[in-house]
């Protein structure tokens, strides 16, 4: 126990640095996809703007982010320990879809419990649930797969085992916090266009997600000395 751990530590260190770099690039791509979702549709659609045609933007944004996440997952393959045969891939994908839908409905229910109108504005509320699931559930599904135990592990305290899971934790929590903070201006009497029901929350979620994407590589880089992960 004299030389061995040291060598392993240096190896881990360099691995970690390259990992952090990859993490940063993937996150930059995600941010880029959100920016694209704001600007690209205006070339194809008339009268497109984030606030006026908010629902269209919500759909486009969630499609973009999902696509980028899937592509990144296939290209980067952060989860090296997946060793599944191709026959399981279809069921796995279907399971992921079901999980995604379930999370959408769960978020919808939570929004209604928080005071969203029950009967009116159902589409708005549901699309809000979809975009929040896109920011939180889709990365989880990509990284951890439809595995509830792993999710619970990652989101319990001190349960993360890699940089990717750590960044997942940070982006998810910051998306939720952004949504939560985004609800505050709704009841105020400022009469701004972005105070209409889901807009301030979706904007909050988006800002929270982007902030999480920016913060997590920086935070991990800052704390790379203290962060050590159990190998599984």
């Amino acid at each position: 126990m004299s030389a061995g751990p040291f060598q392993i530590a240096t190896q881990e260190y360099t691995m970690k640095n390259t990992d952090i770099k990859r993490l940063l690039y993937t996150h930059l791509l995600c941010i880029f996809s959100i920016i694209l979702s704001i600007f690209i549709p205006s070339f194809f659609l008339d009268n497109f703007s984030v606030l006026e045609t908010h629902l269209t933007w919500l759909c486009i944004c969630s499609v973009f982010v999902t696509a980028v996440n899937l592509v990144l997952y296939l290209v980067v393959k952060p989860n090296t320990s997946t060793k599944r045969s191709s026959s399981h891939k279809v069921t796995r994908f279907l399971k992921c879809c079901i999980y995604f839908l379930m999370s959408c409905f769960l978020f919808h229910v939570i929004f209604v419990l928080y005071g969203a109108p029950l009967i009116e504005l159902v589409l708005e509320t549901f699309l809000f649930a979809v975009i929040l699931s896109t920011f939180t559930t889709v990365p989880c599904l990509c990284l951890l797969g439809p595995n509830v135990k792993a999710w619970l592990r990652v989101f319990s305290r001190n349960g993360v085992t890699s940089i990717w899971e750590n960044s997942l934790q940070i982006t998810t929590i910051s998306s939720f916090v952004g949504t939560w903070l985004g609800a505050f201006p709704i009841p105020l009497d400022w009469e701004r266009p972005w105070q209409v029901w889901p807009i301030s929350c979706t904007l909050g979620a988006t800002f929270g997600y982007v902030a999480g994407l920016v913060i997590s590589p920086l935070w991990i880089y800052w704390n790379r000395k203290q962060l050590t992960y159990k190998t599984n």
Binding site: K149, R153, S156, R157, N158, G159
Partner: peptide, 9 residues
């Protein structure tokens, strides 16, 4: 999660 995690937690 699993038992080990739980202990730490």
């Amino acid at each position: 999660g699993d038992d080990g995690d739980r202990a730490e937690w």
